[in-house]
Simulated scan of single mutants.
Amino acid sequence: MTDGTPKARPTSNQAVIIAVGTELLFGTTVNTNAAEISKMLHEIGIGVLAHHTVGDNPKRLKRTLDIAFEQADLVLVTGGLGPTQDDLTKEVIAEHFALELEHDEEAQRRLTTFFESIGCPDFTENNLKQTYLPHGCIPFYNNAGTAPGFALHDPQSDKLIIALPGPPREMRRMMDDSVLPYLTGRSRYTIYSETLSYFGIGESNLETILLPIIDGQTDPTVATYAKEGECKVRITSMREDADAAKAAVREMVERAEGLVAAYREAE
């Protein structure tokens, strides 16, 4: 059994992820970012409703943004923040919210320092494109590369979008350094989870055994899923009080283990 750590729960607990890049559609690059972001969001209590992949095409990205915001109030976009002409993610986001792009001095300072640190002589002017961000956004400076990300909240619609760089190493670093702390800091709620592992029981059989606690569940929630050679049960509670969340999960864990023990004894 693996005990979870209580964490702050974000205001929006459902999200959609958009991965931008024509190379993802060609199959020359595997979209690992969506899976990694989904896992990170799940660990802080945010469920992912959908993954979308779109090429470097502003019209298609705009339509995809519209679809994503119909599905959830929180959208995370990865890719398309670089210096080339086909990197248009922030431009499309700014247009979506009717905002201008503004020069960010800290982004330029970091960009200049980065190129100096690697001794790169061929700094081209198009790199400065990365120093412009949508008006009113919260910048997430890139500690593993050059292109900054950002969070942008629209108070009228209460929609929140987060833009992340496409390179997986940069995305992971920005999620850890900036995005996850930002999201968890938006709410007073906490999430607590525990995961149970079972061997020798199929997922469908395990779900049947646990139906007394799965049917009609509200909080805590109980979810079964299969991995190679084993089945797991994740039990999660989201409450204002961390101790109350942990107590609720512990009670449900005892009920689950009791049901499985009774099944094994009857075999």
Rank of each mutant, 00 (worst) to 15 (best):
N126S: 03
T190M: 07
N143T: 13
L65S: 04
I17E: 01
G216H: 05
E102P: 00
M40Q: 13
T124L: 13
F199V: 13
D243P: 00
H103P: 10
H52D: 02
K232F: 05
E194V: 01
D104Q: 12
D73R: 15
V249C: 05
T184A: 02
F123Y: 12
Y182G: 09
E105Q: 15
E228A: 12
D56Y: 10
E105N: 13
T53N: 07
A248S: 14
D241E: 14
A245H: 00
P121H: 05
H153M: 12
D219N: 15
L111D: 05
L128C: 05
T84G: 10
I118R: 08
C137T: 09
I214M: 14
F26C: 10
T89Q: 07
Y189H: 12
D154K: 01
Y189P: 01
L81C: 07
E23K: 06
N13V: 12
P165W: 06
M174D: 07
V48W: 04
L41Y: 11
T84P: 11
I209M: 03
E70M: 08
G149N: 08
T208R: 10
E95Y: 00
P6V: 13
T32W: 02
P165I: 02
E23Y: 01
E251T: 11
K62E: 14
A34W: 09
H51C: 01
P212W: 03
E105G: 02
L74W: 05
T124H: 10
E43M: 09
N57L: 01
P6L: 12
D87V: 11
M238T: 14
E102S: 04
L99T: 07
R60D: 12
R186L: 14
P181W: 09
V16Y: 06
L65R: 01
I118G: 06
H103W: 14
Q14S: 15
T218S: 14
F26I: 04
A107K: 11
T184W: 00
F115L: 12
H96L: 07
M252E: 12
H135V: 14
P139Y: 10
G229A: 15
E194G: 07
L88P: 04
L164V: 09
F150D: 02
P139M: 10
N205A: 13
G45A: 11
E251H: 07
E125W: 00
G166L: 04
R169P: 02
H135M: 13
K90P: 11
V16C: 15
N13K: 14
G45F: 06
F69C: 09
L196K: 06
D3G: 01
N205S: 13
R9K: 12
T53I: 14
L99Q: 10
Q85N: 10
D104V: 11
P212V: 01
E23S: 05
D158V: 00
S12V: 06
E194T: 01
M1T: 00
L211S: 14
A151Y: 08
E23G: 00
K39T: 13
T236E: 07
E100N: 15
M40I: 04
P165E: 03
V54M: 07
G145Q: 07
V16R: 04
T221N: 01
L74G: 10
L111K: 03
A245V: 04
Y263N: 08
Y141D: 03
G166D: 05
G82I: 00
P58D: 10
A35C: 08
